[in-house]
Simulated assay, not measured.
Amino acid sequence: MSGLYGLSARRADGSDTSLAEFRGKVLLIVNTASRCGFTPQYEGLEALQQRLAPRGFTVLAFPCNQFGAQEPGDDGSIAEFCATNYRTSFPLFSKVEVNGAGAHPIFRYLKQARRGWLGTGRIQWNFTKFLVDRQGEVVARFAPITKPAAIEGAIEKLL
């Protein structure tokens, strides 16, 4: 077990999930927050999920409170927020850190695979998006300002 599929994370419901479960799917992995100016992107993420899931695509959302304390809730309240306000159907994971010594291994892997602005691995803000192909390779990284609809063409090419 190596690469992305060798990693696992806890879902918001407390269950542990190996990313090997998503082998063969195109993934959009996103660090999210419910009190961010980019929070309305949940709507666009869900639209992508609804349109493209039947063809082997899924969004994986990882709430993070490292940027402006914009995700202060616990896993249950975050899940309720997403379900109530955006009717999300994609997997929601437990809150994680994406930078620093406590960065979740998935985000350490993603940042190593696709460096960000000026070649830094650091994630700059909520709603940074990583596109992963069916083989588990990180093929692109998108800034928080990039709306989900703008990524649809890149996802389509991988489906």
Rank of each mutant, 00 (worst) to 15 (best):
N99I: 09
E21P: 00
Q66H: 10
G44T: 07
P91W: 08
Q124L: 12
E97Q: 15
G73F: 05
P72W: 05
T17H: 01
N65S: 05
A53Q: 15
P63H: 09
R51E: 15
K25E: 03
G37D: 05
I145M: 10
Y86K: 06
T39Q: 04
L52P: 01
A61K: 11
P144C: 03
F107D: 05
L28G: 10
G76D: 14
E97A: 14
S77W: 08
G153R: 14
F38Q: 05
A103L: 09
T146H: 03
L159V: 13
T58I: 12
A113V: 02
G44S: 06
A20L: 09
D16C: 04
K25C: 02
C82Y: 13
G24S: 03
A61P: 05
S77H: 13
A140C: 03
I29W: 05
K129Q: 12
P148A: 07
L19T: 01
D74K: 12
Y109K: 05
P105F: 09
S15Q: 15
Q70R: 09
V30P: 03
A20R: 06
G116W: 13
L4T: 00
G68Q: 11
A53M: 04
F57H: 05
Q41N: 09
I155Q: 08
G56C: 02
G24H: 02
G14I: 06
F127N: 02
Q135P: 01
F90T: 11
K95V: 00
R108G: 03
A154I: 04
V138F: 01
V98G: 10
A149S: 13
A69L: 09
E97C: 14
A150S: 14
W125S: 03
G3C: 10
Q70F: 09
F107S: 02
F142P: 01
I123W: 06
Q112W: 01
E21K: 02
D74E: 14
R108Q: 14
D74F: 08
A154R: 13
T146F: 04
A79S: 15
T17E: 08
N31G: 07
M1L: 08
A83R: 15
R23F: 00
D133E: 03
L45H: 10
S2H: 11
K129G: 03
E46I: 11
P40H: 09
